[in-house]
Design a protein around this nucleic acid. Structure first.
Lengths: 313, 313
DNA sequence: CTGAAAGCGCTAACAA
DNA sequence: TTGTTAGCGCTTTCAG
C-alpha cells in the first residue's frame, strides 16, 4: 500500500507539500503540483481516511439511533438526516436500538470513543437525563422536546397541533375516540403528548379500552381494526398514528364488509392524499435535517419545527 | 483528553501493558491489571476507536449501498445485514445512491480510502464490471447473480421460482398478465429475470402495455391500478413486485368499486398472509446476512439462497 | 510478565 | 513556496 511518504519520495518533494496538493490548501507552485499529481496518478494513490480522521480528530461520521427501520416516522426523519448529511459531506451510521437501553448505552460509549462525531437519537428508551450525561464526550441531539433536560434537540411541535386536530374531532360530535400509539404513553413522549392533548380537549382521560399500543405498521393497523371490532367499547372515530396505519385499519373493516369508522392519520403520506382523509404533517424530513444541522453545529441549540393539521373533510 | 500514555504514566506501567489490559490479550499480572484498571476508572478513560482502527488497519465499518430506503426489498436486506453486523460487532454505514452512478463511484472511492472494510451493493446502477474493478481495493459484495462477472455475491435464486409461479398462473388459464417492476428490465437484473421467466413459461414476450415500471411502494401500486383500469389492454392477472404493492393495487379497485383482478405478490410480507394471496418468499433477510458474511469473510464467495413460491389459492 | 520502540498514514505549526 | 518535525492515539514485535 502506497502512502504519502512514498509519493513525497518519488516526486522529490516533502510530505507536507504532498499533503497540500491533496487538500488544495495553501500555496503550492504549479511545478510542484504537476509533478506530485503525476506521481499520484502513476502510483494510483489515494489518501487513507482513517489516518486523516485521526490526525484531524474528526471522522465526518454521524451515528443515528433508530428503534427500528419500518415505521414511517423513522424513515422520514432518517431521510431528512441523510439528505443533509450528504450535502455536508458526512456519512451516516445506522444504530438499531429496538429501544434496548443497553444498546443505547453502547452507542453512547462509541460516541465517547470517537467512532463518530455526533449522535442523533430519533427516539430513545433511556431517560433523557442519562443521555445528557454523555454530552461531555461529544455532540448529541434528540428528536423531541427536551423540556427541562439540557440537551440539544430538533423536534416537531406536537401538542398544539394535536389540540387543533382533536378539537376538530370533538366539534364533529365524536365522543369515543380510538387512539393508536407506537408505545405506551408512560414511556413514549409522543404518546404522552397525544394523551395530554386529548385531556385538554375532552377534559378527561381517554378510555383505556380504546387505546391500542405497539402499533407501528400497516399490518398492526389492520390488527387494531380487528381489536376494535371485537372490543366491547367501539370507537366512533379513530386517531391513528400514521396514514399507513390508518389505511391498515380501514382495510380490516373493508375486508370484513364492515362500516369503516371515520378516522384520521398522521404524517401526510400518500394514502391520506389519495383517499382524502385528514392528517397531521409533522414535517419530519425537516426535523431530520434540522437535527443534523444541530449535530454538526456542535451548539446547544433547540429547534422546533411547526407541524400542521391538514383537514380534508 | 486523556490517552493511553497518560494511563501508562499514572499507573507506572508501560503503554504496551496498558494496551494489553485494554484488549485482554496476552499475560498481565493481576497486580498490574488491578492498578491499571484503577487508573482507567479514575481517569474515566476510554480508548479512541479511530486510533485503534488506524493501527489495526481495520474499521469494523461496512458500507451498504441502497438506491432508496422505502422499498421492502431494501428494508429486508438491510435488516438482515444489520442483524448480522451487530452480532459480529460491526457498524453499518448507509450509502444512498438513487442509482446515481457518480454516487456509486464515490462510495467505491471511499472503500478505497479505507473508510470502511467492505462494501455491499444491494443494487446498483453501475455495470458490475465497473464495480469489480474496485475489488483490488477492498471487499465488495453484490446482491444479485453476478453471472460471468467475477465478484463476490449473495443473492436469491429468482428465475426458477419465477418460472414455478408463472407456470401456476398459466395453469389457471390466465393469459394477459400485468407485470409490475421496480425498474425497466433493460437496466434491472431482477426485472430481466422476471421477463425471462415469463418468456420461458408463455413462450413470448409480455405485452409491453401490461408492464408498469418504477413501481416501488404501496402508493405506486395504487397508481398502477389506475393505469391498468384506464388501459386499453386490461390484465386478467397481475404479478406484483411486492405484497405491499399488490395491496395498493387491490385498494385502487376496491376504492373504485371495481372487480379486483386476481394477483399475486412477492416477499411474503404480512399483507399476503392476512389477505391470503400467493406470493414469493425471496428470503431477503437471509440474503442480507449472507451478504454480510461474505463481506467480512473477505473471500470471493458466491452464495445463492433458494426462494419459495407460496401458493395460497 | 513487561517495556522500548517502530509503526499505522496523515495534518499542521513553525522554520527556513 | 517548501521542508522539518512533532503530533493524533493505539498496536505489536522483539528483547529482556
Amino acid at each position: 500500500m502506497t502512502n504519502i511518504h512514498d509519493i513525497a519520495k518519488l516526486s522529490g518533494f516533502s510530505v507536507s507539500t504532498v499533503s497540500r496538493v491533496l487538500n488544495r490548501k495553501n500555496y503550492v507552485s504549479d511545478d510542484a503540483r504537476e509533478k506530485i499529481e503525476a506521481v499520484i496518478k502513476q502510483m494510483d494513490y489515494v489518501p487513507n481516511d482513517v489516518a486523516r480522521d485521526l490526525s484531524r480528530g474528526k471522522t465526518y461520521n454521524i451515528g443515528v439511533v433508530l428503534p427500528y427501520t419500518k415505521h414511517a416516522y423513522f424513515n422520514q426523519v432518517l431521510n431528512g438526516i441523510m439528505a443533509e448529511a450528504y450535502k455536508q459531506g458526512y456519512r451516516v451510521l445506522i444504530l438499531l436500538s429496538n429501544y434496548d437501553k443497553n444498546k443505547e448505552l453502547e452507542f453512547l460509549e462509541q460516541l465517547r470513543r470517537k467512532a463518530f462525531d455526533a449522535l442523533i437519537f430519533t427516539s430513545h428508551g433511556l431517560p433523557l437525563e442519562e443521555i445528557a450525561k454523555y454530552l461531555k464526550y461529544g455532540q448529541i441531539v434528540c428528536c423531541q422536546n427536551p423540556n427541562n433536560v439540557k440537551i440539544p434537540a430538533a423536534y416537531t411541535a406536537r401538542v398544539s397541533t394535536y389540540v387543533k386536530a382533536l378539537s376538530w374531532v370533538k366539534e364533529q360530535g365524536y365522543k369515543k375516540i380510538g387512539i393508536m400509539q407506537n408505545r405506551d404513553y408512560h414511556v413514549s413522549a409522543t404518546s404522552e403528548k397525544t394523551i395530554r392533548a386529548y385531556k385538554q380537549v375532552f377534559g378527561e382521560m381517554p378510555d383505556s379500552k380504546l387505546i391500542v399500543n405497539d402499533v407501528t405498521t400497516y399490518d398492526n393497523g389492520y390488527q387494531a381494526g380487528e381489536y376494535y371490532n371485537k372490543c366491547s367499547e367501539k370507537p366512533d372515530f379513530v386517531f391513528a398514528n400514521s396514514d399507513d396505519i390508518a389505511t391498515g385499519l380501514r382495510q380490516y373493516y373493508l375486508d370484513n364488509q364492515l362500516q369503516v369508522p371515520p378516522f384520521m392519520g398522521q404524517e401526510n403520506q400518500l394514502p391520506s392524499q389519495i383517499l382524502k382523509f385528514s392528517t397531521i404533517d409533522h414535517q419530519l424530513t425537516k426535523v431530520g435535517s434540522a437535527a443534523f444541522d444541530v449535530a454538526t453545529s456542535g451548539e446547544d441549540k433547540i429547534v422546533c419545527i411547526p407541524s400542521k393539521f391538514i383537514n380534508r373533510k
